[in-house]
Write a protein that binds this DNA or RNA. Structure first.
Length: 482
DNA sequence: TGGGGTTAT
DNA sequence: ATAACCC
């Protein structure tokens, strides 16, 4: 027989040690539970975030706006307030307000079913995401004032690592007297709170911060939402949904098992998606308990070591993934779906529309995309999982024209996109597409350093044979990323 | 099923 | 370039 390996976390530890000082500055540091080995290692960065005794214990807030698109629409159209409202994309009601929900409308319900359930339902078109996107970033920016460590999840959810913020407030408290600390909002399971337990005190302060966040979002942006406070992202997300709408809940560590037991199927576990659920079901794994007790070795063979270990940890409520600050977006895309597109001319028109919107967005962003991608969906029985794409670098002379309004950047871009199109679609043969999408990625900042002046990029040159007295310049080698 | 996003392979 | 995940 072969000895089982025990030290399979060695590499990971070294990697994380190198990153720790960085994360302490930017991300609040304590981003995972301490392993047993680390506790006895004399690490120079230990104890910087959370004092000894409580190990590294994070406080994470998950903020989840209530029916976000519908709220934005009710702000844009106040006369709709109080009426059952649905937001429509194509023939789907993608979300709706609580008046509509009371009358039986569900998210992602077809327009026909929704109207049948609720004939008074008011529908607004939500295919243009511009206003939602703008409001979404306002929320993220507001949250960043509480802690710079904010990770976006979709347009309507954010994770905030408030570990450092909590620590500051703890230190401001009169010498270890926690008797005045109270919870804000619900405590999951109505669990009793112990002020002698420093972890409890930290989470309570987290709940107060969460309350302040929701207050700020409401007062400054007019939006309501839920919040969950817990020791990691998974638990904060699960607990934020326990009191809905416009309420918040904190999870004390002792109730962790109850929270994950409240899931009635593994597909409700964030991180376990459609594909993994199918494969787990084929192994006879349906409940969280099934996953907890399943043989790790067999699971690793079925799903690969990475997925297997990660999701089995999730089943115990363990999640060491850090809150990664999202910053500005990594990509911009616009898509349109339709019943049928079967000619090149038709496709070109739609691509031009998508591109025009994208160019506006990219122009407002300020950064320049260096990659462009075209995505298609061909007609097929399984609508899902059937996209193809081609991408290529954007030629530098096109990139340079991007910010400037006066040059035509559409024409060269459309030419590129149509080449990508013909690379994917044999236009001499009949075809049937149901979606087109254009994506800009590989965004690079313009060099904005010191003086935004041109002379920063030019270096004086003395070798000027023809025009003595006139100064000439040579290009410096320059890269766009500072 | 929409119109977006992200990271890993 | 695709596949998985998230909303």
């Amino acid at each position: 027989g072969v000895e089982p390996e025990e030290e399979d976390e060695e590499e990971e530890d070294e990697e994380e040690d190198r990153m720790e000082p960085l994360l302490l500055g930017a991300a609040g540091g304590a981003h995972r539970a301490l392993g047993p080995k680390e506790a006895i290692r004399p690490a120079p960065f230990r104890n910087q975030v959370v004092s000894a005794g409580s190990a590294s214990y994070r406080v994470i807030v998950h903020v989840d706006l209530d029916c976000f698109y519908a709220q934005v629409e009710m702000i844009s159209h106040p006369e709709l307030k109080g009426k059952p409202l649905g937001v429509q994309q194509k023939y789907l009601v993608v979300t709706c307000n609580y008046e509509a929900r009371k009358l039986g409308v569900k998210k992602l319900m077809s327009v026909r079913d929704a109207k049948e359930k609720c004939p008074q339902l008011v529908l607004v078109n939500g295919e243009d995401l511009t206003r939602y996107r703008e409001m979404s970033y306002k929320v993220t920016e507001l949250l960043e004032e509480f802690s710079p460590v904010v990770e976006r999840l979709g347009f309507d959810e954010n994770f905030v690592d408030v570990t450092q913020t909590v620590e500051k407030r703890l230190q401001q408290l009169q010498s270890d007297d926690y008797s005045g600390v109270v919870v804000s909002g619900h405590v999951y399971n109505n669990q009793s709170v112990n002020l002698n337990d420093i972890l409890h005190v930290r989470l309570l302060i987290g709940s107060q911060i969460a309350e302040e966040m929701r207050e700020a979002i409401f007062n400054q942006l007019g939006l309501t939402g839920c919040a969950g406070v817990a020791s990691n992202k998974l638990l904060s997300k699960l607990v934020s949904g326990t009191f809905k709408p416009n309420q918040q809940t904190v999870l004390m560590p002792e109730s962790c098992q109850d929270l994950i037991d409240s899931l009635d199927h593994i597909k409700q576990m964030p991180g376990i998606g459609f594909k993994t659920t199918k494969r787990l079901e084929s192994l006879g794994i349906n409940s969280v308990h099934d996953l907890q007790t399943f043989s790790p070795k067999i699971l690793e063979k079925e799903l690969g070591i990475s997925v297997a270990q990660r999701i089995q940890k999730l089943s115990f409520g363990e999640d060491n993934s850090p809150v990664t600050p999202s910053g500005p977006p990594q990509s911009f895309s616009e898509e349109d779906s339709f019943k049928k597109c079967s000619s090149e001319v038709e496709a070109k028109k739609k691509i031009e529309e998508l591109l025009a919107s994208l160019l506006n967005r990219v122009c407002n962003d300020g950064r320049k995309p260096h990659t462009i991608r075209l995505i298609i969906r061909r007609f097929s029985s399984d609508r899902h999982f059937n996209r193809e794409s081609r991408q290529c670098p954007i030629p530098s002379h096109v990139i340079q024209k991007l910010g400037t309004g006066n040059y035509d950047v559409m024409t060269p871009m459309v030419d590129i996109l149509m080449k990508l199109f013909r690379n994917m679609v044999n236009v001499k043969m009949p075809f049937h597409l149901t979606l087109l999408s254009v994506c800009f990625s590989n965004l690079k900042s313009l060099p904005t350093s010191k003086k935004g002046s041109i002379e920063f990029y030019l270096t004086p040159s003395s070798s000027t044979p023809s025009h003595s007295g006139k100064r000439t310049y040579k290009m410096k080698d320059t890269h766009l990323e500072e």
